[in-house]
Design a binder for these strands. Structure first.
Lengths: 139, 139
DNA sequence: CATAACTGTTACTATATTAGTCACAGTTTA
DNA sequence: TAAACTGTGACTAATATAGTAACAGTTATG
């Protein structure tokens, strides 16, 4: 379970908010659709709301709706909103002085992986929520 | 700790194997350099060995050495050798029949994320172990 | 005005993945 | 034959994440 699924849950919630206009788009309904607890959904919704992707109204008959056009929301926006962990993590440890590798590998690796992270984020930025919604509706 | 650091440790080990020719490249030495236990290093070494990236000799004065030229080893090779987790994981749950999104989102998302995973792997394949070694030696 | 039905948030528990440790079998050199 | 390696398996510890419950705050509606 130690794998972050918030990103995919977030996409699900946003897609549902985009598709099911009119019907009750509440965290309770989402929880059923995603098959998790309303509380967990609310936690994700809260992040999306703070990131300006989702607009929520409180009170009775409160609901969730996209804050902007689905075309204007990329998967990268969602990725950042839930602040998913980096693709790679570099192990951290004190440098062992006599060892050249031990002292310098971290910087070298970080530099290299920054490129990879960027490649991934660029790819995410090219996929819009709208394309996901279209795909879902097509079937 | 539920973050996979084996990849970066693997790179460290391979870099050390490339740099420190001659000196004792044993799992014990690596453990000091990486600041972890010899046993854990051996587990990673074992994977790298099976993947054909590292050549080990057993017995007294056994050691580790690159199985091929550092130029011929990409970070993608290493990534695959330690079988690091995918960049994204899609949450799994039973489909909720009446909900269109619940039934179709998974396939749509998988398709989209496959692109991203591929972008990441392509980026990794463009970085060679040799470039890391050069970087380390430069300093 | 009271109640019902939402969101937003905190605190706590359960679970799964990963690293760390120990132990020992197998191998090879001296 | 002993010493010093690799290779593995079993077990424990640490930690990130999901799951759960409880409650405060908000708003529509009778």
């Amino acid at each position: 379970m130690a794998v972050n699924t918030q990103f995919s849950i977030a996409v699900h919630i946003l897609a549902a908010s985009g598709c099911c206009r009119g019907e009750g788009t509440t965290t309770g309904k989402f929880a059923l659709s995603v098959n998790t607890s309303p509380s967990f959904v609310r936690r994700v919704v809260s992040k999306l709301s703070k990131a300006g992707l989702l607009k929520t109204t409180t009170g009775k008959s409160g609901s969730c709706g996209l804050a902007k056009d689905a075309k204007m929301i990329s998967l990268l926006d969602i990725y950042r909103a839930v602040d998913a962990p980096k693709a790679f993590s570099i192990h951290n440890y004190p440098e062992q002085k006599p060892c050249l590798v031990s002292c310098h590998i971290k910087a070298s690796l970080e530099k290299a992986l920054k490129k990879t992270q960027k490649a991934m984020e660029e790819s995410l930025s090219e996929i819009s929520l709208a394309s996901i919604v279209t795909e879902v509706n097509k079937k």
